[in-house]
Design a binder for these strands. Structure first.
Lengths: 228, 228
DNA sequence: CGGCTTATTGACATACGTCAACTATTGTGG
DNA sequence: CCACAATAGTTGACGTATGTCAATAAGCCG
């Protein structure tokens, strides 16, 4: 493993608070790969062999129905743990993970993860905290899908993308519009129309770059307070 | 605390594997209450003061939009940990919890939970495992909402309610049809129509009792394999 | 047996999906 | 660097699943 990768690994929230010894134990057999666009990291239905940690780049979590229709469950980026539960429980993946922007991914053998859970208290703790965070993002998404219209979901997504809560910003969509549409539970066409709906609210966009004239206004429109 | 409650507590998966000492530390200040129908255990937006463990009865997790529209995120029953992430992260609840069938609920002070996370390795471990399970149920629900029609979601829900995978069964809805409709992301009217749609597939119901003539057929209809 | 809530049914509205045409954008080989 | 194909995004016309509103029917309880 490269020294630069070791540093990146150390910054992954899941591992950041581990003792040097615990870190060493857990990462003993880690492999780090640079993977190109569209690489499949894991496949829905299969059993996990590694825990994947995203060091850089973007990964999409894709769920598919048996009819073959696909949707994006969520996007993951640097510092994210990919599908910990499947590894922890040694259960089949409920979704596939696909690299979108060339990414560096650390592969931790599943056995090492499960052993670390039993043996390294700090690791279980960190894992629990991470999962708690993901829990909350999923609750938000479930509420969004059930309670908000397509344009409102888009607005909420855009506000979430921005670090600011007022003024004007530019944000970059994490993926092409087809994927974003899937993440928001709609078709690309509906996403286009949702953008048109938000234009009067000061949302303009070209490709992945979106400009928000007034974040606060957008947040009001979609009742963004609900988050956090 | 009653002796019977101690036994129930011991069977909650979150606590089942703890050492006697760890269990004693964590439950030192536990209070157990019997709570009637409609009691609010926690309110969306508020900060958690207790971790709630369901010893018996049923609890509904209710999310609301700022417009005041409510939806059911999920149902919880005996053995479930209510909203651990909010307590763990000391973050505001993203949903409210409401008792539906008179329930016995254990209240663990939030401070004790956070202390136990830091001090009791076994507890963090158990917490991580529990959260991993919930993670999966939410992934399933997100996929269902995005990929399946209303009748398909109902079918999947019914199959999940049954412990069998073939033959005929009777299942009991966890709550009245309005709540079930919300859980499935639809209106009560649509739920009624979804039941009508499933009638040719051998689903008949009266109130909370639903009879499934052929679970396997229903599972095929909604591609139930996806689960676990 | 009324009066209450809860579930169903019907008529209608609408948000969103689908399909197809058209327009940008991106990438590639000459 | 341009031409061109290939891909991605937008727009329009239309269909449909689901929501909405109102009326009816079915449980439930005093």
């Amino acid at each position: 493993m490269r020294e630069s990768d070791r540093e990146l690994l150390r910054q992954v929230p899941l591992l950041a608070d581990l003792s040097e010894a615990a870190f060493a134990t857990l990462t003993r057999r880690v492999l780090v790969h640079s993977l190109p666009h569209a690489t499949l990291l894991c496949r829905q239905g299969e059993r996990p062999e590694h825990l994947h940690l995203v060091l850089s780049g973007q990964v999409t979590l894709v769920g598919r129905s048996d009819a073959g229709v696909e949707t994006v469950v969520d996007f993951f980026g640097a510092g994210d743990v990919l599908i910990a539960p499947a590894v922890m429980l040694d259960a089949p993946y409920l979704a596939s993970a696909r690299v979108v922007n060339d990414a560096r991914i650390a592969f931790v053998p599943a056995d090492d993860v499960r052993q670390a859970m039993a043996a390294l208290p700090g690791f279980s703790h960190a894992l629990a905290v991470q999962l708690a965070r993901y829990w909350r993002t999923f609750i938000r998404q479930i509420k969004e899908l059930k309670l908000y219209s397509a344009p409102e979901r888009l607005a909420g997504f855009l506000v979430g993308l921005s670090s600011q809560r007022e003024g004007s910003t530019k944000v970059a969509l994490p993926e092409d519009r087809k994927q974003v549409a899937a993440r928001l539970g709609m078709t690309p066409e509906s996403l286009s129309r949702a953008f048109v709906t938000l234009r009067p609210l000061g949302v303009t966009g070209k490709g992945k770059q979106v400009t928000i004239a007034d974040v606060a206004r957008l947040a009001t429109y979609c009742q963004y307070d609900r988050v956090l």
